[in-house]
Amino acid sequence: MTTQPLLSVRGLQAWYGRAHILTGVDLVVGRGEVVALMGRNGAGKTTTLKAIMGLLDRRAGSVTFDGRDVSALPPHRIARLGLGYVPEDRRVFTDLTVEENLEVGRQPPRDGAPHWTPDRLYALFPNLAEMRGRRGGRMSGGEQQMLTLARTLMGNPSLLLLDEPSEGLAPRIVQQMADALRALKAEGLSILVSEQNLAFAAAVADRASVIEKGQIRFEGPMRTLLEDEAVRRAYLAV
């Protein structure tokens, strides 16, 4: 075990077309840690995750993953280093069945990261097991969200970038999602999860970083954020 964090982001900037969305984001995720990236709609949470993953045309700053600079790599190379990305808008392959969606995500086993097979994932997400042959387009939003997560896990990532997993889901599904994330953490997976829902974040995360208008404004243990009403008012609430 090294003392070096698993993911370290320094001065990350990103643009969407001409809009300068991130003006300098600094983030750290340690091994085995779950970090919540909090912030209001439009604060830059999704952009941060996409920029880390190399999915934006224009970005600047440094992203170090597992000791390697990945800031100039294309997404598929970053993914093959063990960084798993779960998008907010689900983006399941709607023409592909559940099994095929999982197959797309499959990568060889990786040292230092849990190894996933379809059977292990079906055990974790029993819903999916019942619909292996169903096409992604014929699933409900909650089922799609589970599938997207399972699909990324097939790549045996050591760090998961999870974009707003609770958004638009019914409370019961949100509960299942939180359980799943805790189970993943128990497996030793590190997670960076972007979230608006404080209750959800509090249920899964060790630490929080609060982003507002393209920069990190608060960084500290989840507990501190829960107790610090001023920060909550300033960056999260009304």
Binding site: R232, L236, V238
Partner: peptide
Amino acid sequence: VRADPRVQAVYLGGAA
């Protein structure tokens, strides 16, 4: 609207 508990629940979220 700010004081409406239903709005608090669905929109302003657990944060409030």
